[in-house]
Amino acid sequence: MTTRVALVTGASSGIGESAVRQLLERGFIVYAAARRADRLAALKPLGARPLPMDVTDEAAMANGIATILNETGRIDALVNNAGYGAYGALEDVPFDEGRKQVEVNLFGPARLMQLVLPSMRAQGSGTIVNITSIGGKIYGPFGSWYHATKFALEGMSDALRVEVAPFGVRVVVVEPGAIRTEWSDIARENLLATSGDTAYGAYARAVKDVLEAADRPDKASHPDVVGRTIADAITSANPRPRYAVGAGASSAIFGRRLLSDRALDRVISQRMGASNAVPDTRR
């Protein structure tokens, strides 16, 4: 049998690193892509092939896909995992930062899908796994740009799934809940830097505390929970269209289905400490 080939973005830590390890254990040739290639050093002894790639750089993405096809002749799986949270009040987040959030979380994955689909169609098989979030189904204060990209990637994945199914290509969405990764640290830092000293400051600090509490080891899941799910989906003969995994994921999505918008707004506001955060409208 031909050895299967996978590309994983955002592979330098967390979910991406775990997915690389899981796929290597299942016999894949795995290209581990990240903006900072030096952070991929730990994966190289395991057999991963480091690939420098910034998902906002068209040339880097095109060259990366060309490298894989030149070396192996095929791509069997693409895991779009690279992403981050540009947290802050919509009023406060600089518009250039909003654009960057869309570039990284939506346009980057979309371009990589465009680049891998011709070879997947030609071989009559392939699996695209898009890592969205429960934040692609529910929402919270100060995550407007992040949630917009994840909601959009969910919709793009659904449309693509039925679009490419006749060619033997599968599209899977993985929706992590609370996972112990760098994501939460970056989101909290962005939140305080952007809105910690504005009219939204008290509310932003309350939300930062909630996010920090949710990231504790006894609350959040290990990245391997998601890494195994990704590998299971790719190697499954009939993967589900989407997988909600990790702490709080299933219950959050169930709540979204059960509650009206107004009821969900109240629940989210209460849990995020809105009642204890008095906005300073004078600023």
Rank of each mutant, 00 (worst) to 15 (best):
A213G: 09
V245W: 03
H222N: 12
S236F: 10
P241I: 06
S236P: 01
A213D: 12
R240I: 01
H222F: 05
K208E: 15
G227S: 03
A249H: 02
T229H: 03
G227D: 01
A233K: 03
R240M: 09
P223F: 03
I234W: 04
H222T: 07
A213M: 11
R228V: 06
A247V: 00
L211K: 01
A252I: 00
A237H: 11
A220R: 00
N238Y: 11
A204K: 03
E212L: 13
K208L: 08
A204S: 15
G201D: 14
I230F: 03
A204F: 14
S221I: 05
V226I: 15
L211H: 01
A213E: 12
A249N: 05
A202Q: 12
A204G: 13
R228Q: 13
R242A: 11
A213Q: 13
I234D: 05
R242H: 14
V226H: 04
P223M: 08
L211R: 00
D209W: 02
V245R: 08
P217F: 09
D215A: 15
A247T: 03
A237K: 12
S251D: 14
A214K: 13
T235V: 09
A220Q: 00
A214I: 02
T229V: 13
T235N: 09
V225N: 04
R228P: 05
A204T: 13
E212T: 13
K208C: 12
R216D: 01
T235S: 11
S236A: 13
N238C: 05
R242D: 09
A244P: 01
V210K: 04
A214Q: 14
A252Q: 02
P217I: 07
P241S: 10
A206K: 14
R228L: 07
S250T: 13
A206Y: 07
